[in-house]
Design a protein around this nucleic acid. Sequence first.
DNA 1: CTCTCATATTTACAATTATCTATATTATAC
DNA 2: GTATAATATAGATAATTGTAAATATGAGAG
Lengths: 103, 103
Amino acid sequence: MDALECTKILKALGEDTRIQIFEMLRNGKLCACKMIEKFDITQPTFSHHMKILCDCGIVVSEKDWKWTYYSINCDKLNELLTYLGHTKCNSNLTCECKKNNCD
Amino acid sequence: MDALECTKILKALGEDTRIQIFEMLRNGKLCACKMIEKFDITQPTFSHHMKILCDCGIVVSEKDWKWTYYSINCDKLNELLTYLGHTKCNSNLTCECKKNNCD
DNA sequence: CTCTCATATTTACAATTATCTATATTATAC
DNA sequence: GTATAATATAGATAATTGTAAATATGAGAG
């Protein structure tokens, strides 16, 4: 992953509604109709946010019957974590470098 | 780390100039005057970006003589990685969950 | 004290983005 | 075919944010 792709994902996640959507999806797949109930926004606004999350690759969508299901693209998420974590820590700042687990 | 703090950091990093600043700082501490040479922006704009990066906690600054040095706050970075990585991957998306190393 | 250097702040403006209403699409049910 | 349901797109507007010019601050040097 390069800086350009990374920025696109960070831009997508760096917004109040969209980070909440991300949090909701962390426990698994959800359909749009269930998710939108939790937010005080209109359906087109929700759809707009989902498009941004999908366009950057961090979320994937799949159609089933007449519903659209969304889930986190864990491969892409791990690419992002690897990119961000690839940081040399200087002397006066200790780096813990913890393992990131999906429990 | 909660969603609010996370969003603030993601907002800070999700901008073209600031992700480049982040990349520059990954190899260690740098002073403002050296960094600004690499960018085609004015000094006030650079200062504005550094303020956003410092306010969210992902970058720390220290004054030495008349120069200001910036470096990545690795503790905060690891908090962010832990937060983002705390994701349950569903059945049809395999989770690699690689260890993030600072080499 | 004044001068210079490095950086920060203020103000204003331009570009981007989040949001809405209205409409379109796509699929199913009748 | 029409009607309904779930989601997407288009267009308009309001809010946010990136940028630069001008100015301020703070710390040596003389």
